[in-house]
């Protein structure tokens, strides 16, 4: 962690939906400047809710942060309008892609620059096209006609148009072929190394995520149950058994960990 403290810190947040469903139960994590931090966990563990809590999207789903605080770049951000965060350099790439399907690819990207008032939008557009050449080929097509991988590139490109310092990347591998997953993740690594973009990455696919991340948190039932450097997590026998499906000798422990993992209706 840098001397200035973490870029993002989430301190003991509780999230409640419709005033009755408690989805996050005191979740704490922090992301250092320039880091790639993975948020791992099964379906329904609370990964997406964490991302939405940071991006202030819960209100439109009748959820709210009832306890704890979220700081970004030293300032408290819970309570801001979601659109303010793009201006501060924090972008969310939502789970399930969410490209504007009726807008052309180029219009999708231009909307990403909405919060900017400088004149360098065209330049950013070219940079995104250089990163994702396939988007340039299809820039006049409606985004809804793109393949899943191209849509993922389109929404990452849209996030980049805001010139973010940090991107929250929610489940980018969902529904993509393994080769495409590697391509998306290596682009993330490249953006991290070359442009210094910080990433918080929520992933079910722990095997891939831990290869690219520097640090990881494992979420179960709305709280962090394990954390550590990515390499240590990847070597952890329990995690290997329940999330990587690698170590048969830890099966007994894995079963007890899995037994605690109940499906949840809201997350």
């Amino acid at each position: 962690m840098s001397a200035q403290g973490p870029l993002l810190s989430v301190a003991g947040i509780e999230v409640m939906y419709s005033r009755l469903a408690l989805v996050l139960r005191g979740l704490t994590l922090s992301v250092p400047r320039g880091g790639i931090v993975a948020l791992l966990g099964a379906n329904g563990a609370g990964k997406t809710t964490t991302m939405k809590a940071i991006a202030n999207l819960l209100r439109s789903e009748r959820g709210e942060v009832t306890k704890g605080a979220i700081h970004y770049d030293g300032a408290r951000i819970d309570g801001l309008d979601p659109s303010d965060l793009a201006r501060r350099g924090l972008s969310l790439v939502m789970e399930g892609r969410h490209a504007f399907s009726t807008l052309s690819v180029e219009d999708n990207l231009k909307v990403g620059a909405y919060s900017r008032s400088d004149g360098a939008v065209a330049e950013s557009l070219e940079r995104v096209y250089a990163t994702f050449p396939r988007l340039k080929e299809r820039r006049h097509q409606p985004a809804g006609l793109l393949s899943g991988g191209e849509q993922q590139m389109c929404v990452i490109g849209r996030a980049l148009m805001a010139r973010p310092r940090m991107i929250l990347l929610d489940e980018p591998s969902m529904g993509l072929a393994p080769l495409l997953v590697e391509e998306i993740f290596s682009i993330m690594q490249q953006l991290n190394a070359e442009a210094g973009v910080t990433f918080l990455l929520a992933e079910q696919n722990a095997a891939v995520a831990l290869r690219y991340a520097t640090y990881g948190y494992l979420v179960e039932g709305g709280r962090v149950v394990r954390e550590g450097p990515a390499r240590a997590l990847a070597a952890d026998p329990e995690i290997r058994a329940s999330y990587l499906g690698l170590d048969a000798s830890a099966e007994a422990d894995g079963a007890s960990l899995a037994a605690r993992r109940r499906p949840r209706w809201l997350s």
Partner: peptide, 21 residues
């Protein structure tokens, strides 16, 4: 353009920095 984005996907538009109000 932002208005069409909101009509298409409100949350994604907000995240992209479009002020809904």
């Amino acid at each position: 353009r932002a208005l069409r984005a909101v009509a298409d996907d409100t949350q994604a538009a907000q995240v992209a920095g479009v002020p809904l109000g």
